[in-house]
Structure formats: C-alpha cells, structure tokens
C-alpha cells in the first residue's frame, strides 16, 4: 500500500513538472511573443513570409504552438503514467 502511495506521490510531482513546463511555453508563445514583446519581435525577428513575427505569432503561430503543446503533453503524460504503473487503461 505504501509503495502505491509513494508511486502516486512521485507521479503527481512528475505531472506537475510536465504541466508547469507546458504552461511556461504556452504563456511565452501567446502572452510573450504575441502581446508583451510583440513590438520587439516585429522589429528584431525574421519575418514569416511577409508577416512581421509578432503579428504572425498572434494570428497563426501561437495557435499552431498550442496544438503542438497538447501533443507533447499527451505524449509526456502517457510516458509518465507507464513509468509509475498507471498506464493500464487504454
């Protein structure tokens, strides 16, 4: 029983790390690139096609990033589940 409890606590800790990292990137690509630092990004980053970088992030890049983030989240969490023996459900 205590084994199970330890592994649950470990799993929870690991999942918080994954969620934390995902959310940092999430905040950076949306609030960071597209809103707070957008003027700097527009001026200093390479253009995407004809679009200034910050503008492109606001209208396209961040959305593409969100989809990729969720894929990464799913992959990492599934791996974590298996590591701690919680992966039996399909």
């Amino acid at each position: 029983m205590s084994d199970n409890k330890d592994s649950a606590a470990e799993h929870y800790k690991g999942s918080l790390k994954i969620v934390g990292s995902i959310l940092i990137i999430w905040a950076f690509i949306s609030f960071g690139c597209a809103i707070l630092f957008r003027t700097w990004m527009d001026a200093n980053m390479p253009k995407i096609g004809n679009a200034p970088f910050g503008f492109w992030m606001a209208q396209q890049g961040s959305i593409i990033g969100f989809v990729l983030l969720l894929l990464a989240y799913t992959f990492l969490m599934n791996k974590l589940d298996e590591k701690h023996g919680f992966g039996e459900d399909s």
């Binding site: 995902i22 999430w26 949306s30 606001a58 961040s62 959305i63 969100f66 983030l69 969720l70």
Partner: peptide
C-alpha cells in the same frame, strides 16, 4: 483567436 484556442491548453 488566441483566447479561444489557448484556453484549451
């Protein structure tokens, strides 16, 4: 655009 998609994260 960002608000209604980013919320899903």
């Amino acid at each position: 655009l960002m608000g209604w998609t980013g919320g899903f994260v």
